[in-house]
Amino acid sequence: MYPSQSAQAYEHKYGVTVPVPVPPENHIPPYTSPAMHAPPQRGLTPWSTGLCHCFDDPGNCLITCICPCITFGQVADIVDRGSCPCVASGIAYGLLLSFTGLGCLYSCLYRSKLRGQYDLEEGPLPDCLVHFCCEPCALCQEYRELKNRGFDMGIGWNANMDRQRRGVMGAPAMGAPVMGGGMTR
């Protein structure tokens, strides 16, 4: 942007420089296409396991096939960071699944939250379609992702955070393990 004619005349007459406004970094002029100025995409992380790797954890695969509300409750507790307990999330999912048959409408929201928290790739299909087409596989993949990130899925968010504070192995985002003093007599 250049100063206007009147600004140049003011500078000449009074010897004072008129500051030229600079648009903010994310400013897109109205005459250009926003697609031309889209910010570069952040690097997204791939999932630690594939959608169909359910048999990497056969115990969870079996539980999810028999009663998906258990796996969903465990995933939701970690994703919500303990704000909604595992039991409450599992019951809400189970009721929605029982009365409508569409628990995927609720669980796909948690897949999106999980992806947002860890910058995970969406994959070949949107989250809702992944859950609609293959709900058990999607829940198992989310469970494995959190487990591979260091969460003990059986104890919930609060216990995981307590373990992390105490430095117990298996807790997420821990530092180096604390070594004992060695053997004593």
Rank of each mutant, 00 (worst) to 15 (best):
I28R: 10
G170A: 05
Y118T: 03
P124S: 15
Y110S: 04
K113C: 06
Y31F: 14
D162G: 05
P23W: 06
P34C: 12
E142M: 15
V178Q: 12
Y143A: 02
M183L: 12
I28T: 12
W157K: 01
L139R: 03
L129W: 02
P177L: 11
T17M: 07
D119I: 09
C140F: 03
G82P: 02
E145P: 03
P40R: 13
H27Y: 15
E25V: 11
H12V: 13
G43S: 12
G90C: 09
Y118K: 04
L95W: 08
L114M: 08
G43Q: 13
M153D: 03
L44I: 12
V79C: 02
C69D: 08
Y93P: 01
S33T: 10
G103K: 10
V178A: 11
C65W: 15
G182V: 04
Y14N: 14
Q8I: 12
G90D: 09
I91K: 08
M161Y: 05
G82T: 04
Y110W: 07
L129S: 01
L102E: 05
P39Q: 14
Y143G: 02
Y2W: 05
P24W: 10
H27R: 10
M174A: 00
G43H: 12
Q74R: 13
C67L: 15
D162H: 05
M153W: 01
H27F: 15
C54M: 10
G175P: 00
H131T: 02
D77V: 02
N148Y: 12
T32R: 14
V79I: 10
F151M: 01
L120A: 07
G154E: 06
C108D: 04
P126V: 07
C65R: 15
P29A: 14
G150Q: 00
N26W: 13
R42L: 15
G180M: 07
S107H: 08
P24H: 14
A138E: 03
G43F: 07
G103L: 09
L139E: 02
S112C: 10
F55Q: 14
F151E: 03
P46W: 01
G154L: 09
V87E: 10
S83M: 11
C140G: 00
I155P: 01
